[in-house]
Design a protein around this nucleic acid. Structure first.
Lengths: 151, 151
DNA sequence: CATATTCCTACCAAGAGAGTAGGATTTGTC
DNA sequence: GACAAATCCTACTCTCTTGGTAGGAATATG
């Protein structure tokens, strides 16, 4: 699995914050409750988002979290990349610059590189706002059945 | 990681068989040696390919494996799907028909479904033959720097 | 019959995934 | 100043997957 619960929950949190964010800081327990997820586990995931500069936080009573930017200024790629560490579909493509020692002669490498680019490209093209407004056409593209209603 | 060594090695085996396949059956030890992989581990991977109808096999002396079809008649998608079980990027999209119970109200589901389709689409568009002939344009698409040589 | 090969079952060690536990620190309110 | 509500921080644990290994049975060729 390329994206674990960590990345998935992180995205869920971001969506939740974007929806509730108008009225100031939202507490962890609030998020955990409305998404029905373990508060302790969410805590560790939010910590990653927070350290990565995705959120603003406030400690103490009435504290909580809110988005640091406008929803349209987050790509899904950066959210998942931060929480998952890498989104490469195979182990032989990890970070920029680092590559397998067989790379020069590996005939399957272009395939993995192409797959990686296709994934990255898709995730960079979708923003947090797209998810919130339910932009199915952008997310599902030609596979969206409800986008062009049957006559 | 979406594709483990199992899927990667399986693809390598298929490529190797396609290249050597003209002269009849190729033995496991032969493949393991030329790809420099553990023979015992490859054995378990080839067993999956063989049971899945991807290969023809012959036991006994001078036995071995060969492709069941022409390289151009294998998509990368089917090879990886067989060995990996699933290529879904997230756990909430597994098999056709089976879906998460929150699916109806999940705002992130269209994203995962779209990502899944993008991946599937890419892998269905590439054949074993494309890898063997090194069809970089098809694999790397717009990201292929060597496809349009600099003037 | 010897040898080279596939086939089959079982086992194992390390790491990742998915959380839990407990407490320290900070801030707002009474 | 005390208390409560919240974030922050470190460490631990359990289970499943990954990436193999071991040993031998069955089978075909010469």
């Amino acid at each position: 699995m390329m994206v674990s619960t960590k990345g998935r929950y992180a995205l869920t949190v971001m969506v939740d914050l974007a929806r509730k964010g108008e009225n100031g800081y939202v507490s962890l327990s609030d998020i955990a409750e409305s998404e029905n997820l373990s508060m302790k586990y969410l805590e560790s995931i939010i910590a990653i988002l927070n350290k990565g500069g995705m959120l603003k936080s406030l400690r103490g009573k009435n504290g909580g979290y809110m988005l640091a930017r406008d929803p349209k200024d987050y790509t899904i790629n950066e959210i998942l990349l931060l929480t998952e560490g890498t989104l490469a579909p195979v182990n032989c493509i990890m970070q920029e610059g680092v590559q397998c020692e067989k790379a020069a002669t590996c005939s399957t490498l272009p395939l993995w590189a192409g797959l990686d680019k296709v994934i990255e490209n898709y995730l960079k093209g979708i923003t947090l706002e797209d998810i919130i407004i339910g932009n199915r056409k952008k997310m599902l593209g030609e596979y969206c059945e409800s986008c062009e209603p049957a006559e």
